[in-house]
Design a protein around this nucleic acid. Structure first.
Length: 279
DNA sequence: ACGCCCACCTGGAGGC
DNA sequence: TGCCTCCAGGTGGGCG
């Protein structure tokens, strides 16, 4: 589920229910996530008020009063669901609702993660920048400063296929398997192209495509937040129309192309692309 | 240093 | 129905 747009949508969905609210109770149904929950986790969080919720890469940063930040990552299968008191009463806990926050307004935020590749931990605010998880992360793709030249500089000298470089969070953050495929399609660049050849105008096109697919998906996520409170209160889940992702064998959407989308495996992940439109 | 492979874990889909 | 295999939107450790 979660690449940058989904994490950003979760963030925006949590803000109105958490920021300025006090967490009165924290339940831990399972502690063995990818990284085990911190010792004394509940004790350290209960009674704290949430100051703000930020995002860095695919991490949520829940800023607590008192100088601590709760770092959350959704992994592959992590979700957040929101329930008011009535909804919570109607929806018994799922077996993968590992962590539950309850606020002073009576709302619940449930962190559900079937595969347990996600994590939650605490760090002092001033330790975040130096934190192991954040060391070496590349630039945020939606920052103004991230342009074709910035990407080209990070690809210089690299022999790995461009698709693999986009998935590498040291190149840039937030792009995962879906948006890597979609951005390369929009830019007309083959996923197999050697990274160091993505320079100049080609890098400009790729950055424009990355920003476009991410922004469009954030917009789609925003409309799910406004339009329907989904049964079960799930945040950040929305189906965008993909051009190529998971569409192997289906016609390439480019007008007049007529070829079908192909699937190949690169560093263990599925890539979807049009061999005719992407060079 | 770099690039690739695998493991981590559970569940859903499809084949037989 | 059941059992098997494959696949899944992320990350980091270990290898050559």
């Amino acid at each position: 589920m979660p690449e940058l747009p989904e994490v950003e949508t979760v963030r925006r969905g949590l803000v109105p229910r958490l920021v300025g609210r006090r967490i009165v109770r924290l339940l831990q149904h399972r502690r063995d996530l990818r990284v085990p929950l911190p010792a004394q986790f509940a004790k350290k969080v209960e009674g704290r008020t949430v100051r703000a919720i930020d995002r860095r890469a695919k991490y949520l940063l829940i800023r607590l009063e008192g100088g601590q930040t709760l770092i959350a990552h959704l992994g592959m299968s992590g979700r957040m669901t929101l329930h008011d008191a009535a909804s919570a009463a109607q929806h018994p806990f799922d077996r993968h609702d590992h962590v539950v926050f309850e606020t002073d307004e009576g709302w619940q935020v449930r962190f559900n993660d079937a595969r347990r590749f996600g994590l939650m931990l605490l760090a002092a605010d001033d330790a975040i920048a130096k934190h192991k998880l954040f060391k070496g992360l590349g630039p945020e793709p939606l920052d103004e400063a991230f342009d074709g030249a910035a990407l080209a500089g990070r690809l210089k000298g690299r022999r790995t296929p461009i698709k693999a470089a986009l998935l590498d969070q040291k190149t840039l953050v937030g792009v995962g398997n879906i948006y890597a495929c979609e951005a390369l399609f929009l830019a007309g660049i083959s996923p197999r192209r050697s990274s160091h050849t993505v320079q100049g105008e080609r890098a400009d096109r790729l950055v424009a495509a990355i920003k476009k697919v991410l922004l469009r998906s954030i917009e789609d996520g925003g409309s799910t937040l406004r339009d329907h409170v989904q049964p079960g209160g799930e945040l950040g889940y929305f189906q965008t129309r993909f051009n190529v992702y998971d569409r192997a064998g289906i016609a390439c959407p480019t007008r007049g192309c007529g070829r079908s989308v192909r699937r190949l495996v690169q560093s263990g992940r599925s890539t979807f692309y049009c061999a005719h439109c992407q060079r």
